[in-house]
Write a protein that binds this DNA or RNA. Sequence first.
DNA 1: TTCTATGCCTCGTCACGCGAGGTATAATCG
DNA 2: CGATTATACCTCGCGTGACGAGGCATAGAA
Lengths: 112, 112
Amino acid sequence: MGERDPTLMAGVPELVVLRLLAEREMYGYEIARTLKVLSRETLSLGEGVLYPALHAMEARGLLRPRPRQVEGRTRIYYQLTARGHRRLERLTANWQRMSAGVARILGTSDHE
Amino acid sequence: MGERDPTLMAGVPELVVLRLLAEREMYGYEIARTLKVLSRETLSLGEGVLYPALHAMEARGLLRPRPRQVEGRTRIYYQLTARGHRRLERLTANWQRMSAGVARILGTSDHE
DNA sequence: TTCTATGCCTCGTCACGCGAGGTATAATCG
DNA sequence: CGATTATACCTCGCGTGACGAGGCATAGAA
């Protein structure tokens, strides 16, 4: 029942969300907007991806919800747990290994 | 019925297989081995991934099978079609955009 | 009042990655 | 000779995750 690796599948949403939350706590809507800006439009998580992902990560103990009322609206801020930090490191390492692998393949003209 | 993009999901297997076949025609087993070596063990396509992927790509007209008998064993070499080349370009561009996006997120300490 | 932005949510689909298993031949090694 | 290893193909079934489309509610602007 340990954390299951995304094997080859990207698992990008989980990775980037964890990364953002490692910086500071944020709420869903904010995460989506920030992601768009930082990635310069190349990464956009639809809400149909984002919210289910957040719930799943919460259920796995990777983040802790911090609901707040702000100007009549409910925001659910999320904090990374210790587990979440560990997960982030792991996923980051995986991503780097695998994207490096892909880069090597893509840059292959048979040299090296 | 045009080619469906892997949205955010990696679609790495399809991408790397197309890339290898762009270089020269190869058969399944060879692809698996080559991939391992070139990516330095970081990318390994199990046969449960590779063969279904090859069949799917063939069905979509991205590659053309070239069966041959070699030393009593059957090898199915695959050639990239024109469609396959176009698909490769597209996927490559997508991959680069998105991995750049991820890299930007990962490298975020709030600067830039 | 109607529209836009904020802010949350769920449901159903679909494709895909993957492990486990299966077949068959050729070569190698005891 | 028999067993094991490498080659070479394949399928089935599972799980999960990405996604679009939709829905609810409030605040403020037009």
